[in-house]
Amino acid sequence: MKLPDNFIYSQSSLQDYVNCPYRFYLRHIQGLQWPALQTDDALLMEEHMLSGARFHRLIQQYFLGLPLERLHNTAEADPNPDLPVWWQNFHQKLSQTISATRFPEVKLISSITDTRLMAKFDLVSVSSDHLTIYDWKTSQKPATKTQLKARLQSRVYPYLLAKEYAALTKANTYKPEDISMIYWQANFPDDPQVIEYSQSAFDADELYLTHLIKEINSKSEQNFIKTGNLKHCKFCNYRSLCEKGVQAGSFSELEPGFEDSDLLEFSIDIDQIDEIRF
């Protein structure tokens, strides 16, 4: 299968493929717009996503060095009453623990089997002997380490950083053992999920990702088959096209930790919103 020109793999597109090869085909190869609901409580989900985006923005502003008082005021004025709490949790329990050299909202790209793999990190912090990836989550339900580890994000992010950290710092050399990934959950600040990386995990991820991407690259159109797992179809906008159901699944049934990847098709990421064409 010929991928679209300029196609770059990401944890999100790979997760799509793993969940349902046909969804990957429709979304990333065909670029098909199919605007059915993804969850039944669409407004609730939208509000959740928008709040999450504002929280991400607030943390980015913090690491840019914007005055703290102004960020407090912004958080307090937010329409979502949870956001000031998330902000306080972040400020009081996490912000001071993150080391001096910090790269918020940073994007890294790596070559893999003649194609590219990209990751956009919420934050990477660099110390003399350690690299830490932070990912902010704002789910109402706590995500367990098992759930998070099962996601492609937990493989792609540390793998990419291990390969491409030199784009951020050339001061030291780092081994995979020097990398950890922290899912910091704004509603559960005392329960961060830490995933330590290692050489063996790196080797396994390299093998897995290379195999996965080769598999996709060599697949013919008709072999992008539909998933048999209807749970995925419940939250997939293509369900009517595949004749896999009518109604979207309930927002409350969504697995915690989904935000920022699966359903962020809304144009709410500030960087993705179209510029005004003037």
């Binding site: 923005r57 890294l108 790209i109 790596s110 070559s111 491409e164 500030i270 960087d271 510029e275 005004i276």
Partner: peptide
């Protein structure tokens, strides 16, 4: 080509992003 990425923007786009940030 790997590592960080080159930024491609319009100046209007830069203005918009920076006003938000």
């Amino acid at each position: 080509y790997s590592g960080s990425s080159v930024t491609l923007l319009t100046l209007g786009g830069l203005a918009r992003r920076m006003v938000g940030l």
